[in-house]
Design a protein around this nucleic acid. Sequence first.
DNA 1: TTTACTGCAAATATTTTGCAATATC
DNA 2: GATATTGCAAAATATTTGCAGTAAA
Lengths: 153, 153
Amino acid sequence: MNEDKIKQSVRNTFTEYLHSKKLRKTPERYAILDKVFDMTDHFYIESLYSTLESEAYHVSRATVYNTIELLIDCGLVRRHQFNNQPAQYEKITGVGNNHHHLICTQCGKIKEVKDPELIKTMNARRYPTFHTAYFAIYVYGVCSRCQRKNKKK
Amino acid sequence: MNEDKIKQSVRNTFTEYLHSKKLRKTPERYAILDKVFDMTDHFYIESLYSTLESEAYHVSRATVYNTIELLIDCGLVRRHQFNNQPAQYEKITGVGNNHHHLICTQCGKIKEVKDPELIKTMNARRYPTFHTAYFAIYVYGVCSRCQRKNKKK
DNA sequence: TTTACTGCAAATATTTTGCAATATC
DNA sequence: GATATTGCAAAATATTTGCAGTAAA
């Protein structure tokens, strides 16, 4: 699926969601959705906001915060929060869970890794009385770069 | 292992850590460590701080923040952060990873669940060039209480 | 025409920082 | 005695909120 088709598909998802919740289909919301899906990596509210600004599309921060909340609610975006850094977000394309995160406790760098077997195992898990929607796996440790740095000392 | 023995053991761990990093062994640090290990559940900096205050042991918030950072660094405490709530912490006793978390996306309630098989699977994972220290698994969904609430509507 | 949504600015809340006083090593 | 750590207050930062104006339905 190419980028345009993905965007069209997520726009449809969003439209359905807005419709079902009786929320309004404003140009701001679609502009934000589009920029979110231009992002190739994790992003912050601030980076999303300034990307929009840099392209001369002005929306208030309040609207960015508000819209991201909607995108999370309809499953198009997920939030991550590490240490006491500002919240990070990532777009969700296709199947919700297909990777997880390695987080370096020294430099804070985050790497996505695919591990289909583990994902399969996780998907098979059931917890009584709990309706699972999705999950997140964070592996903490020391990345190769920091390992090398440590050796030098 | 009873509570006193656990406390003695974590005090030793902390002392070794402070020693190895050439940090000072202040009474404030040990008082905070002790209160952390009195906590039976997840806690906030603020709840830890006010517990100390209520027992007439005064430390500044800055010291609480600073000490928690040390406890995380030496593996006695872990941080969690959901939504945009303040950071939550939990003490780590014995083996680091023996439970994971179910988080209700509606009411925000967090439940710890044991799932030894899954933990075993996770512990067996290896990621090239990455030195794993520990991991966290968060399962998001709707708890039983909220499921019932939703049905009523 | 109704009222949900937007932008802006102010408010809130958590965490961090600067600095003088104190206590550990 | 040197300096790491503390307490306090102020600052920084991220996010939320109130409100008046605008636009979607």
